[in-house]
Computed example of a mutant assay.
Amino acid sequence: MNVALLGTGLLGQAVAERLHATGHHLSAYNRTPDKTLSLRQQGIHIASTAAEAIASAEVVMLLLADAAAIRAVLLDPSTSQALRGRATIQMGTIGPSESCSIGEEIERLGGQYLEAPVLGSIAEAKAGTLLIMVGATPERYATWSPLLHALSSDVRLIGPVGKAAVMKLALNQLIAAETAAFALSLGLIRRGGVDVENFMAVLRKSALYAPTFDKKLARLAERNYAQPNFSARHLLKDVELTLAAADSARLSPGGLPGVRSLLIDTIALGLGDVDYSALYERVDPVTGT
């Protein structure tokens, strides 16, 4: 299938590599050309504009940072007319109201719109093991799920546009909350002089355990946040979206504003573009900092 992929950040690049490896023909575009160099070296066509990428494609896949980026890249007058007669699959994390609004604009331009946010990151994208949540009509889901199955064996129709975006925020706020909670627990253990492995051994046998704790343990223990799968800056964006969605739904956000503050402070430390587990530096700072 001929695919235009817009947005080649960490996840977008991995998705492009997977689609290319499974036999799809890609034309990729990114506003920062340096982020496309490795894809070019793999034989993937790199377009100089979004309109060029879309021109020969049957479907447009969006892996852009946020709704503002989608509007700037896709709904610019120089690009938007190319959407007529094509499907656009939005795979990033944006708010449900943002997804519905963007979908309505694409439909008015004569295109089709689906949302398909994912759970998982670089390794899962390259292996084809992402979890994909689809917001669309049943008919559009049936048409485009075979393409999405190149990236996942678990592609689920959640409901109409907007519903998958809600589910994605519900899951991503758990990432933020669990990481902040684990950082505090680990800080207490280390400052209290308790053996970390004893703590982990008990935690792993309890109902409190989540696999993400072991995934992040080495990063926190070594204070090594390089080569991120997902940055602190992007997690803050998702926390902000969750808080807005919770407010719209008249829900109390509990401790999430506190996690938001941790992430803001983490970014202020110059750690916005490293792994989001760097919030540990705010929870348990090095003595004297």
Rank of each mutant, 00 (worst) to 15 (best):
S48C: 15
D76K: 05
S48Q: 15
S56W: 13
R71Y: 11
L63C: 14
S78L: 14
T79W: 03
A57Y: 03
L62K: 01
P77E: 13
L64K: 00
P77M: 15
V60E: 05
L83H: 03
E52C: 09
L74T: 01
L64T: 02
A82I: 04
D66K: 06
M61T: 06
P77G: 13
T79K: 03
Q81D: 14
L75G: 06
A65D: 12
L63V: 08
A69S: 14
A57C: 13
L62I: 05
A72C: 14
V73M: 04
A68C: 12
D66I: 00
A47L: 09
S78Y: 13
I54P: 00
D66H: 02
Q81A: 15
V73A: 07
S80W: 06
A65G: 13
S80D: 13
L64S: 01
V60R: 01
A68N: 11
A47Y: 05
L64R: 00
L75T: 07
E58L: 12
L74M: 07
A47G: 10
A67G: 14
T79D: 06
S48T: 13
A67M: 05
E58Q: 14
Q81R: 15
V73Y: 02
A55Q: 13
I54E: 01
A69I: 01
E52P: 01
Q81L: 15
V60Y: 01
T49S: 09
A53Y: 04
S56V: 10
A82P: 04
A68H: 12
A51D: 08
A53R: 01
L75Y: 08
T49Y: 14
L75W: 02
L74N: 02
A65S: 15
A67R: 07
V60S: 04
I46V: 15
I54L: 08
L64H: 01
I46Y: 11
L63N: 11
L75E: 09
E58M: 12
V73L: 10
L74A: 00
Q81M: 14
S56K: 13
T49M: 10
A82T: 04
E58D: 14
L83W: 00
D76I: 00
A65R: 07
V59W: 02
S56M: 14
T49F: 09
L74S: 01
A57E: 08
A50T: 03
A68D: 11
A50R: 00
V59I: 10
A47W: 01
S56I: 12
A53Q: 04
L63D: 03
A55S: 11
V73S: 05
L62Y: 05
L64N: 01
D66M: 07
I46W: 06
E52G: 07
M61G: 03
T49W: 12
A72H: 02
A67N: 12
I70R: 00
A55F: 10
Q81N: 15
T49I: 10
P77S: 14
A68V: 07
A53L: 05
R71N: 11
A72D: 12
I54D: 00
A50L: 10
L75M: 13
A65P: 08
